[in-house]
Computed example of a mutant assay.
Amino acid sequence: MADTTPQADAAAPEATADRKAARLAKQIRAFATSHGGSAEGQLAHIARGTTRIALVGANGEWGNLVAPSMETARTAAALAGLTLHDDFDGEFAAKVRTGPYEWSRMAGLQLGGPANPQQ
């Protein structure tokens, strides 16, 4: 029979957050391994309590993960040994390597990329 005491009910969300942080940490480590052996990151609140984990690999490749809370994101970063930056600017932003796809998406028609949809 399942334990339905208040202590068990309170522990369930914490256990779920721990599992999510462990999964995110595994994804962060996999990203680092496949992009030069290390990665750095920055955490940013995006919406409804969720947090973006922006990752930049040693080779300049970048990616994002989304955590359900800032606390889960911080725990995942700590478990993965991720170096965190306060802001995504300066030296950290300069490490990002962008390719033709990103430039065409950012510049749109100016560089022959897709047009912005008509509103």
Rank of each mutant, 00 (worst) to 15 (best):
A54C: 05
G90D: 07
A115Q: 13
H35L: 01
D89W: 02
V66W: 06
E102K: 12
G90P: 01
H45Q: 11
V96A: 14
G60Y: 14
E40V: 04
E71W: 02
G36S: 10
A25H: 14
H45D: 11
E61T: 13
Q27Y: 06
D9F: 03
A115S: 12
G113N: 02
G90L: 02
D3P: 05
W62Y: 14
D86G: 14
L79E: 10
S34K: 15
A58F: 06
Q119R: 15
A22V: 01
P117E: 13
L55H: 09
A10F: 01
G90Q: 06
A11K: 12
D87F: 09
H45T: 02
A2Y: 09
V56H: 11
H85L: 03
F92E: 13
E71K: 11
R19N: 07
A15I: 03
R97C: 00
K20F: 01
D18V: 04
D89K: 15
L109F: 00
A15Y: 00
A44G: 05
D89Y: 04
T33G: 06
G63L: 05
A54E: 13
R74V: 00
R52C: 02
D9Q: 13
A44K: 12
V96P: 04
A78T: 11
E71V: 01
G57C: 08
W103Q: 14
G99N: 14
G90E: 07
P114A: 14
G81K: 15
F92C: 08
A22H: 09
T83C: 00
E91L: 04
